[in-house]
Simulated scan of single mutants.
Amino acid sequence: MALTSSFSRAIYSEIEEIGWEHLVRLAEDLSFVTFRVVDKKERVHVLEILLDKSYPNCPPSVSADVPYLFNLEWSTNSRLKDVVKQFRQHLEKLQQFWSTVEDIDQSLWVSNTAQLHRATSFRHIKIGNLFLVQILTPIIPLLVCEIFCFSGNDCSVILSIRANEPRSLPECRFLGSNENVNLLRDKWRRNCNKWSKDKPFAENLANLLECQLPGPPGFEKNDQQIECGICYSQLLPVDDELGPKSGGRTDYTCENSTCSKAFHSVCLGDWLRSITTTRQSFDVLFGNCPYCSQPVAVKIGTRK
């Protein structure tokens, strides 16, 4: 993109309207800009806006970690703040979806949680030993889901949740031995009418399966993987440029006890660099927490 002074001024002016404190990244050639957006449940989202060389005559493209994107309404008079506004409205429509999957994560045994992200619309759930369940409860109905056999008669189910109707009956298919699959399909057909949008997801699943489902496996607090308050990922990407921090967990926590947000020091350092009020002394950046505005200080290192 040819950087004209008028184009640069226009982009900087539109970023100013949104607020530089919401800026995460800005391409040197102004081909894209990334903003941090917090929804009403304090979930952090990152919105990337790709700018065509004919912007604003041509609408920008957007990408975000959501199950589906919104249809951008655009005119030649539209600005970046209009994109962010429409994204916020889209996030409001997805609140029930995220509340539903979070309820599943907290009440059931979900596998591969480290690989889940905000766009994931399925959950891989451990059911338990199918043989033992059959002895305890002769009737084992099943809802919409996929079944994976771990070992022996131990099985699990993958629920596909509808992002636009998260409390409705999910979709699924079964995997496993023919005997178990046929049994589960038969029970599912008999009991699918038990599903109720007014009941919690885990309760609905237990009613359809007519069994007690295992809860989340126990683990120590120190072993928990906490999302970064800036990139909202648990682990940094595996990248040689990050050096020893490649693939690392959150390693910085706001000292304000009423906040206690966790961050990757790399993400927090990049965030602080984008704020004009940040001060630097040697290899330490001094600024404010993105959430509570309390003072923070993070040591920065040179990347490979």
Rank of each mutant, 00 (worst) to 15 (best):
P216C: 05
S265V: 04
N180I: 07
I18F: 02
V46M: 09
L132D: 14
S151K: 14
Q134S: 09
T278A: 07
E48L: 09
S13I: 03
L26V: 10
Y252G: 02
F174K: 06
Y252Q: 06
T278S: 13
W188R: 14
P200D: 01
F122Q: 06
A114P: 08
D270G: 05
I139E: 13
L130W: 08
N204R: 06
L108A: 00
N178C: 13
T100K: 00
V38S: 03
S156I: 01
Q96I: 07
N71I: 13
L3A: 15
F201K: 04
S156Q: 01
T277K: 11
F263K: 06
V38L: 06
C289R: 02
A64Q: 04
T258A: 13
P56K: 09
C58Q: 15
C254W: 01
F131T: 13
L272W: 05
L116K: 07
I11N: 00
F70T: 08
P67V: 06
G176R: 05
R123L: 00
V133I: 14
L116Y: 08
N204W: 03
D239C: 06
V37W: 00
A10T: 10
L236Q: 07
I135A: 14
H22Y: 02
S177V: 06
T302R: 15
N57D: 10
I140M: 05
M1N: 10
H124Y: 10
H124G: 05
Q294N: 14
R173T: 13
T4Q: 02
T100C: 08
V298Y: 01
S281C: 14
Q89A: 07
V238F: 12
D239M: 06
L130I: 01
D65M: 12
S5W: 09
N182H: 10
Y232G: 03
I18H: 04
L108R: 01
S257C: 10
K41I: 02
Y12M: 12
W188S: 15
F150S: 14
P67G: 07
